[in-house]
Lab assay of single mutants.
Amino acid sequence: MTYKLILNGKTLKGETTTEAVDAATAEKVFKQYANDNGSDGEWTYDDATKTFTVTE
């Protein structure tokens, strides 16, 4: 399945997607991506749209 990440950071904004077997796997990928790019904030997940959002 395709999962989407929306970044609403102070310095990093945008979207990216990943293919993953489940939401937990996608979350690990996205959290590593956000960490690698210095983005940290409040995470939410919408199962209906398969979208993670991180807001700083």
Score class of each variant (00 low, 15 high):
Leu12Trp: 14
Gly9His: 06
Glu27Ser: 06
Tyr45Glu: 00
Phe52Lys: 00
Tyr45Trp: 03
Val29Met: 09
Lys31Asp: 01
Gln32Met: 09
Ala24Pro: 07
Ser39Asn: 11
Tyr45Leu: 01
Ala23Ser: 08
Lys13Ser: 09
Lys31Arg: 15
Ala24Glu: 11
Glu15Arg: 06
Asp40Thr: 14
Val29Lys: 08
Tyr3Ala: 02
Thr55Glu: 06
Thr53Gln: 05
Ala48Gly: 07
Val29Gly: 03
Met1Asp: 12
Ala20Glu: 03
Ile6Leu: 06
Trp43Val: 02
Asp36Ile: 12
Glu15Ile: 12
Tyr45Ser: 00
Ala48Asn: 10
Ala26Thr: 00
Phe30Glu: 00
Ala34Trp: 12
Leu7Cys: 09
Val21Gly: 08
Ser39Glu: 11
Asp46Asn: 08
Thr55Phe: 08
Thr18Lys: 03
Leu7Glu: 01
Thr25Leu: 06
Lys4Leu: 07
Asp22Lys: 02
Gly41Arg: 04
Lys31Cys: 05
Asp22Thr: 04
Leu5Gly: 01
Ala34Gly: 02
Ala26Met: 01
Tyr45Met: 01
Lys31Gly: 02
Thr53Ala: 04
Asp46Pro: 00
Met1Leu: 11
Glu42Asp: 11
Lys50Gln: 08
Glu19Val: 15
Tyr3Val: 02
Asp47Ala: 14
Asn37Thr: 09
Ala26Ile: 01
Trp43Thr: 00
Tyr3Cys: 04
Thr55Lys: 06
Lys13Glu: 05
Ala26Glu: 00
Leu12His: 13
Ser39Gln: 14
Thr18Pro: 01
Thr16Leu: 15
Lys28Val: 09
Thr25Val: 06
Ala48Asp: 10
Ala20Asn: 02
Thr2Gln: 08
Asp46Met: 04
Lys50Ile: 02
Ala24Met: 10
Ile6Lys: 06
Met1Trp: 13
Leu12Val: 12
Leu7Trp: 11
Asp46Gln: 04
Tyr45Arg: 00
Glu15Met: 12
Glu15Leu: 08
Asn8Thr: 09
Glu42Met: 11
Ala26Gly: 01
Asn37Asp: 04
Gly9Tyr: 10
Asp47Glu: 13
Asp40Lys: 13
Thr2Cys: 13
Glu15Trp: 14
Thr11Arg: 09
Lys4His: 12
Thr16Gly: 04
Gln32Ile: 10
Thr53Asn: 04
Phe30Trp: 01
Phe30Tyr: 01
Asp36Tyr: 09
Tyr33Val: 05
Ser39Phe: 15
Ala26Leu: 01
Gly38Tyr: 10
Ala23Gly: 04
Glu42Lys: 09
Leu7Gln: 03
Gly41Trp: 15
Glu42Gly: 05
Glu15Gly: 08
Asp47Pro: 14
Phe52Thr: 00
Val54Thr: 02
Leu5Val: 03
Thr11Lys: 10
Asp40Gln: 13
Lys13Pro: 05
Thr25Tyr: 07
Asp36Glu: 13
Thr25His: 12
Leu7Thr: 04
Asn35Arg: 15
Thr16Pro: 02
Asp22Tyr: 02
Leu5Ser: 01
Phe52Arg: 00
Glu19His: 12
Ala23Cys: 13
Gly14Gln: 13
Met1Asn: 13
Asn37Trp: 14
Thr25Ala: 14
Thr55Ile: 08
Ala20Gly: 03
Glu27Trp: 15
Gly41Cys: 07
Ala26Gln: 01
Asp40Ser: 13
Ala34Thr: 08
Thr11Val: 12
Thr18Cys: 15
Glu42Thr: 13
Thr55Met: 07
Lys28Ser: 08
Thr2Phe: 08
Tyr45Thr: 00
Val29Asn: 05
Tyr3Leu: 02
Trp43Ser: 01
Glu42Cys: 12
Glu19Leu: 14
Thr44Glu: 09
Asn35Ala: 15
Ala48Thr: 11
Val29Ile: 14
Glu15Tyr: 14
Glu19Met: 14
Ala26Asn: 00
Val29His: 10
Lys50Arg: 14
Ala34Asp: 01
Glu42Tyr: 12
Ile6Tyr: 06
Lys4Glu: 03
Thr2Trp: 12
Asn35Tyr: 14
Lys31Leu: 06
Lys31Gln: 07
Tyr33Glu: 02
Phe52Asn: 00
Ala23Tyr: 13
Gly41Ala: 05
Asp22Cys: 04
Asn8Glu: 08
Gly9Ser: 09
Ala20His: 02
Thr11Met: 10
Lys4Asn: 04
Tyr33Cys: 04
Glu15Val: 13
Asp36Phe: 12
Ala34Cys: 14
Leu5Ala: 02
Thr2Arg: 10
Glu19Asp: 09
Asn35Pro: 03
Gly41Asp: 04
Ile6Ala: 03
Thr17Phe: 13
Thr16Asn: 05
Thr44Asn: 07
Asn8Arg: 12
Asp47Phe: 07
Thr2Val: 13
Glu42Val: 14
Phe30Ala: 00
Thr18Ile: 14
Phe30Gln: 00
Lys13Met: 09
Glu56Trp: 14
Thr17Asp: 04
Glu19Tyr: 15
Asp36Leu: 12
Phe30Val: 00
Tyr45Ile: 01
Glu27Tyr: 15
Lys50Tyr: 08
Tyr33Ile: 07
